[in-house]
Structure formats: structure tokens, C-alpha cells
Amino acid sequence: MMSPDSSVLAVKVQGLKKSYGSIAALQGVDFEAPVGAVTAFLGPNGAGKTTAIRILTGSLLPDAGSVHLFGADALRSGQDLKKRVGYLPENNPLWPEMTVEETLAFAWSAQGRVGHKMSAVERVVVSVGLEPVFRRRIQECSKGFRQRVGLAQALIHDPELVILDEPTNGLDPLQVIQIRELVRELGRQKTVLLTTHVLPEVEALADRVVLLHEGKKVVEGTLAEVTSVKAGQQQFKVTVNGSEEDLKSMLATAGVTRLESGFPSSSAQASAVVLADGGQEIFEAAVKHDLVLLELAPRSGTLESLFYGLTQAEGLHV
């Protein structure tokens, strides 16, 4: 990946709010994306990721808040700022009757570029591997190739910031690997903002993570930061000599958030991974429930467990 420069921000969003009628899609979201980094915008469906991206790219106006791209106010700047951004929307909209060549030439012209059109088209066609379908109509291309065309139209004008909304959505596993490889390559040259709810994608591609849930930012930081710590809490693996029910009851008393409980358990032992302020409350709860604590080990978390814990915390607060 291109080495991130956290002192220069490609994106700075503050207090972003947007409602659709009575539904609050964004409730005062702040986040940043440094120049040169791949920032993953993570969250379950309906978290507000696409709404935030649409505001960033200018196809939607917020109810409140500010958006700065490369230091300029994106909500008040003219069209020139848009030329510095390439965007692949969710569902990758394209004109089915146009050929790949026409689509890219059209995108090039619409980005206000003049001259060297064909060399720009050829460059991007080679970089995303569109040679086999260059003269084919979009409606005749496979979904994988259509996704590449979408990516190519986002890159045709050589933007500094590339925003990709769920770039692997709906692709088969092989196509997912190919698109991820393209995004990884892209991250070596440009600032990338990527939305997804696919956790391995974030772990494979991103330098930084912004986790959204129900229109609010839950956590933001580097991958290492967000998987190890959340507001002073730490992950622990807990094993007791009892049933799953005994363990749940004990953890409820301790008042901790259960992240995972899929560990092999027998009738004699049960395990779980929890998010807690420290080990003391778990120890005391085990004593209270007359359970022997076989294991209470601090653990570096995975993104998956963090995602699960932070977005499902209320439901699983055992």
C-alpha cells in the first residue's frame, strides 16, 4: 500500500446528519481518511455507509455537517473538486447499450478531460484487464467484467481519491479475488475509501477502519488499534467448568459483552470470548456462581469479533 500520510487528509467529515423522512440514516458522523491510505468504511447493511458515500461524492446533500476533500469544502466547491474523485457506486450502474470502449470514452469526456482520450482509455483498460471485452456492449459482459468497467470508469481520469461502494458485492469467489487484487494494487498508488460489510476484505485491504452502526460511528482507527482496544476494554477468553447456560448466567452477572461463543464445549466445560474492562468482574462473578474459572486469558481480537461485538452489543449483552 502507498505509505499513508496522516497529516494530510483526503477526507474530513464532521457532524454529518441525514434523514429520510423519520428514518435517521446518519446521526452526526465524524471521520477522516488520510492521503495515501486505504480506509474501509465498515458496517452492517443499513448502517449509513452508502448515504455517507453519496454525500461525499456529491449525489446527495446532507441535512447538517461538513465534508472536506483535500481541505476544500466539498458541499460548496465547484465542479473542479469532483475531478479529483473517482467513484464506483453500489450496484455499479452502467449504460447497457454502450460498448466498454464507448463507456470509458464517455466517462473521460464527462470528467472534463480533452485530448489523449484513447491513450487514457487504453491505459485503464490494460490496468483493470478489460482487453477481452473492449468492443463488447456492457449488456453482453459478465458481472465480473461489468464490475471492472465500473472500476475503470472510476479511474479513467486518474483521480487522487477513489471511492468504492461495496466493490465485490454479488460477485462469485473468483471474481471477488480478482477485484480485491485490483483494489490492493490501487491502494499502492492512490487514496482509497472502500465501503463493505465483508470483514476479510477489510483485513486484506485496509490500513484504517471506520465502523458505522445505525447511523453512528462506533469506532475509528488503524486495523491494529480497533481490533485490540475499544474504549479501554479488552477481549478475554473465558472457560469455566460448567454448561453453556452456567457460563451465560455468570457473564450476565459480570455485565460483560459476549463476542464469540463458538468454542468446543462439553457438558463439563464452556468457553466464550468477551469484551470487558478487566478480569476482576469475571473472576468475582465466577465465585458468586460457584464456577471454577479454568481460563481467563487476555486476547488480541479479530475484526470479526469486534464487528460482532460492537454492532450486536445490545442484543448479546449477557
Binding site: 473542479d80 469532483k82 450496484n91 450502474p93 452502467l94 464527462a110 472534463g112 470508469q153
Partner: peptide, 12 residues
């Protein structure tokens, strides 16, 4: 087709 969204993000 959703291309309206794309058009609105272009410098037009």
C-alpha cells in the same frame, strides 16, 4: 439503471 447517481457525481 442507477446511472443518474453516477451523472450527479461527475463534474457536470
Amino acid at each position: 439503471e442507477g446511472t443518474e447517481e453516477l451523472l450527479l457525481t461527475w463534474p457536470i
